[in-house]
């Protein structure tokens, strides 16, 4: 029996699953460093987040009687990113609420992969932040800190006393996946080199943010390396689904994120603004898409359309 179909008859070897897997791999340097720094509790929390997201997705698909989509790894990726956004001291049951928010409410209620307008991990982080503020803002010291540091306390973003080296290798207080800036940079560059993400959004995000911090008289390098900025810039401002589709749009998205993050960090009540910035820019993404549509080559404007 000959199979009949429309052309083309060959397809490239990139798949959704492969893209998700590559992003998870890119997250590993930072995540593993975080786990090394904070120990078993960070490992348990990470595994719980990934499992929580995957199970929530599977259950949602079963309840909705839809095709099972766990194998596309997008839920596992959301779980990984969510874990990296959490304080190592957060109780597991609270993290699981985050998983439910991310997958069931933000993603599946809107129609599943590709249909959600906001980044699931970001919304989950914000929900946890507002619901369990004290747990989300309590930071234990890393295992390599000296005795005098070995108490819970402020992140370097507030204390402002960490060295560049500590910020790069992750020997600071903070969320599991945010402390190791070097790991995040390695992961981001890996994704850019493998052409999984476009450099437009992260460069615009970090660039404008650093410039504004410099103008405001702060140390731009310290500001970029501390807090959740790099994780947000490389891994959440580049989420395909919730950010603009064109390169021009991605650049504008990055600029918007950078400016909002700066405003919140500098003038807002929260020490950390990157996640709010991305959520706000997620909301305007359809508008950015609208006015950055690429110019069609060879198109002629008809008089009727011009009216």
């Amino acid at each position: 029996m000959l199979k009949v179909s429309a052309s083309p008859h060959i397809t490239g070897n990139m798949s959704t699953q492969k893209i998700m897997l590559l992003v998870i791999i890119a997250l590993l340097p930072s995540l593993i460093t975080g786990i090394v720094m904070f120990g078993a509790k960070a490992l348990i929390l990470s595994v719980a987040c990934i499992a929580g997201c995957v199970v929530t997705e599977a259950l949602c698909r079963i309840i909705m009687k839809r095709e099972q989509t766990v194998s596309d790894l997008s839920a596992a990726l959301t779980g990984t990113i969510l874990a990296m956004n959490l304080s190592p001291d957060l109780p597991v049951w609270q993290a699981l609420i985050g998983c439910f928010v991310a997958i069931a409410i933000v993603k599946q209620l809107f129609g599943g992969l590709g249909q959600n307008f906001a980044n699931p991990a970001i919304v989950a982080r914000i929900v946890l932040m507002l619901s369990f503020t004290s747990n989300m803002t309590t930071w234990s010291a890393t295992r390599f800190m000296t005795d005098s540091d070995a108490v819970t306390g402020a992140t370097p973003l507030i204390s402002g006393d960490a060295s560049y080296i500590d910020l790069l290798i992750g020997n600071t207080k903070g969320c599991i996946g945010e402390v190791c800036s070097l790991g995040l940079i390695i992961g981001g560059v890996f994704l850019i080199v493998t052409r999984i993400i476009s450099p437009a959004a992260p460069l615009a995000f970090i660039g404008i943010f650093a410039a504004l911090e410099f103008i405001a008289g702060n140390d731009p390098i310290y500001q970029v390396l501390s807090g959740g900025l790099l994780l947000c810039a490389f891994f959440m401002a580049t989420d395909y689904v919730t950010t603009p589709i064109t390169t021009k749009g991605k650049f504008i998205f990055g600029l918007g994120c950078g400016i909002i993050t700066f405003v919140i960090r500098e003038y807002g009540g929260y020490p950390e603004g990157a996640s709010f910035a991305i959520l706000l820019m997620n909301i305007v993404t359809p508008y950015i898409d609208n006015f950055t549509a690429p110019k069609i080559i060879g198109a002629v404007k008809h008089e009727k359309e011009a009216e």
């Binding site: 199979k3 008859h9 060959i10 397809t11 990139m14 798949s15 959704t16 893209i19 989509t69 596309d72 997008s74 599943g112 992969l113 590709g114 249909q115 395909y240 689904v241 589709i245 064109t246 549509a293 690429p294 110019k295 069609i296 080559i297 060879g298 198109a299």
Partner: peptide, 28 residues
């Protein structure tokens, strides 16, 4: 005359934009 043919299953659009960038005429 092909024996091996791609029979990949369709999944949801993830808005990656690869189709836009591949189109010679910048269609979407």
């Amino acid at each position: 005359a092909m024996n091996k043919i791609s029979s990949d299953k369709q999944s949801a659009c993830i808005r990656c934009g690869r189709c836009l960038r591949a189109c010679p005429f910048n269609l979407m």
